[in-house]
Design a protein around this nucleic acid. Structure first.
Lengths: 193, 193
DNA sequence: GGTTATACGGAGGCACCCTCCGTTTAGCAA
DNA sequence: TTGCTAAACGGAGGGTGCCTCCGTATAACC
């Protein structure tokens, strides 16, 4: 067996470190989300309420921060789907989840702009996110179908594609309100009749 | 007649102003041409040997400088075609002119990168440059055809398109030597036989 | 409670952006 | 030639962002 393997038990990660990391990810999503393509790392640190040094320790490069922030948003969306699936109205749950996707796209746009179309992130990240999002969407749709309130002839894949279409077609400065309204329409159309 | 028209004779533009403007344009082409996408305006001013204030007076925005630099390169290429057309060997003239285009493309690439794909320049600039370049190319080709040393079945438009293809297909870091070699091949192929 | 590995934070050094204004100089007329 | 002055010069200065380094603080463990 490998003799170079760590022999001493690592100390548990400090609680403040975990907390700060979390704060930085949330702040990054916020700052990049406004999408003015002008995201400074110092602004992220300020928003997170941590020192710039802490930001750099957690995320040594700009790219590392963006990628982590994006992944974090995806994870949150997946978790949100879990939560919503436990709630009452399946249609409402679906609507809320799809609306939450707006934030994800905002973050992603910020990433793409700031990284200057550097083929956004790794393809591993792409695979990871599409898989998680599809699972989440499927979970919400299928519950509605089972309850008889959502039509069963629309695969979750198609719904996600439609969502992507709605979100990426919007290019105007204040695109989010329009996107939210369209999502409303889309989800209403998903009701079983 | 318009009463608002300037009534007092304007003083002639100062010689140093003209000289500095010229220097700035040349420096801008150099700095943007290296194409690391990292062109700082201070670097341009330094290279031109003028103060940063002078740069800003001549070109109030980044875009203004880039556009002027590009236009300047186009003008120089047109002028070069005139010069070469007066020289001896038509084939050699054509080769030299096409090789000079490499620098233009380098500048343009720097522009596109630095401006972050801001739909490079005005469409007026596009029209202007393609018209001038086409005229220049046609002049060189037709002289060779008239002298019987260049084949007459290739329109200048096609030659320019081929050149563009050669130049834009190159994406590696040190693409210019390869482009120059390919231009050599292309021009040799243009000989009448 | 004491020790210590970890993490924090921000000062500091550097580069760039852009503006403002005192200084210099080229053009012009006498 | 000389003097006047509009025009141009240049760089200091104030602001921001990048990233590193290291003295200080503190959570984890004994």
């Amino acid at each position: 067996m490998a003799i170079t393997e760590s022999s001493k038990a690592r100390r548990k990660t400090r609680a403040d470190s975990i907390r700060n990391r979390e704060r930085l990810l949330a702040a990054a999503a916020d700052v990049f989300g406004v999408g003015d393509g002008q995201a400074s790392l110092e602004a992220v640190a300020r928003k997170a309420g941590v020192g710039i040094g802490t930001l750099y320790r957690h995320f040594p490069t700009r790219e590392a921060l963006f990628e982590a922030a994006y992944r974090h948003e995806v994870d949150q969306l997946a978790a949100l789907a879990e939560d919503l699936a436990a709630g009452s109205d399946p249609v409402d749950a679906l609507r809320r989840w799809m609306q939450a996707n707006v934030r994800l796209v905002a973050t992603k746009r910020g990433m793409v702009e700031t990284l200057q179309l550097a083929a956004y992130g790794s393809s591993e990240l792409k695979a990871y996110s599409s898989e998680r999002l599809l699972t989440a969407a499927r979970q919400l749709v299928e519950r509605g179908v089972a309850a008889g309130v959502i039509r069963g002839d629309i695969p979750a894949e198609d719904l996600l594609r439609a969502l992507a279409g709605i979100l990426y077609a919007q290019t105007a400065g204040d695109w989010q309100p329009a996107a939210l309204r369209l999502i409303d329409v889309l989800v209403d159309g998903m009701r079983a009749r």
